[in-house]
């Protein structure tokens, strides 16, 4: 199948792009890496009238530290995330998730802005953003506003961004020395969207968990925080019995549905196994880190 007819406009700036969006009478879409959008168009699942190419807007690039946060420009490619030393040392959860996103060819084109804006519930980066409660920077051409990740993912492919707003950057908090994280997913083939995946970040005081955020993806219409499991684990030293309680609590946190390949019960079971295994892998802070 071929994509339907579509007009194309290459924007030089954010205001340029937003203006084009506003003046389009039909359905306009921003085009970043095209790795989700073009596939959907080729299947005629999406038939926009106008594509506004934002991939050449320099202001949307770059990875830099700003105070206690790392600002990642929307056009940052998945491959850049994978190889960035700043991200490796300051946002290790994002670095851990990046190898699980698709395949090298797709990672060379796909962008973090596109991934978060598209809000595929099976995607890795939205889950990481939610686990770290990243701040999403939205630009409407005139002004910029921020939405916390926990308020951003509203429903299936639905976010808090207003029509025409460009997701200009994602701000991740810099990891603290007492913080540990882990990421894993189960997919039948490497590089596929996961059957179920989990991103975990925890702050420790010595061996005790002060605060933990557990986010599952591919289990609902958005990435999902496992609040009950988090509660079961807060204040514990993650011994086996704590983990068992968290696994039990998971039933109240997740309500996955059946799909053609995997039943809800299987997904629940896999989520529970994944949780136990990942909590077991959550590295306990080294004595040095505890002192620091």
């Amino acid at each position: 199948m071929k994509a339907g007819d579509v007009a194309y406009f290459r924007a030089q700036s954010v205001s340029d792009a937003v203006a084009a969006f506003r003046s389009c009478e039909g359905d306009a879409r921003y085009l970043a890496g095209g790795q989700s959008l073009l596939a959907a168009m080729n299947l005629r699942l999406l038939t926009p009238d106008l594509l506004i190419d934002i991939a050449h807007i320099d202001a949307l690039r770059g990875i830099e530290r700003r105070g206690g946060e790392i600002r990642i420009g929307a056009l940052t490619r998945h491959a850049e995330i994978l190889s960035s030393p700043i991200i490796a040392s300051h946002v290790p959860l994002l670095a851990a998730a990046a190898p699980w996103v698709a395949h090298p060819a797709i990672r060379n084109k796909g962008t973090i802005g596109g991934s978060i804006a598209f809000a595929d519930p099976a995607s890795e980066f939205p889950a990481v953003a939610l686990a770290l409660n990243a701040r999403i920077e939205l630009d409407n051409g005139d002004s910029v506003r921020f939405v916390e990740a926990q308020d951003f993912f509203l429903d299936l492919y639905e976010t808090a961004a207003e029509p025409g707003e460009i997701l200009s950057a994602v701000w991740f908090p810099v990891a603290t020395p007492d913080q540990r994280c882990t990421f894993d997913e189960l997919a039948r083939r490497r590089g596929d969207y996961a059957i179920v995946g989990v991103a975990i970040v925890a702050d420790f005081s010595g061996e005790i968990v002060d605060r933990i955020r557990i986010v599952f993806f591919s289990v609902g219409s958005t990435p999902v925080r496992a609040l009950r499991a988090e509660a079961a684990l807060t204040g514990t030293a993650l011994v086996d019995t704590d983990i068992e309680l968290a696994q039990q609590a998971l039933a109240g946190d997740l309500s996955p549905s059946d799909d053609v390949q995997v039943s809800a019960a299987t997904r629940m079971h896999l989520a529970s196994v994944l949780l136990r295994r990942q909590l077991g892998k959550l590295p306990v802070p080294t004595p040095k880190a505890v002192r620091a």
Partner: peptide
């Protein structure tokens, strides 16, 4: 032999 079919054979899930 999908993961789900293995789990069903094992009696882990319905």
């Amino acid at each position: 032999m999908t993961p789900q079919r293995i789990l069903r054979a094992l009696g882990t899930v319905q």
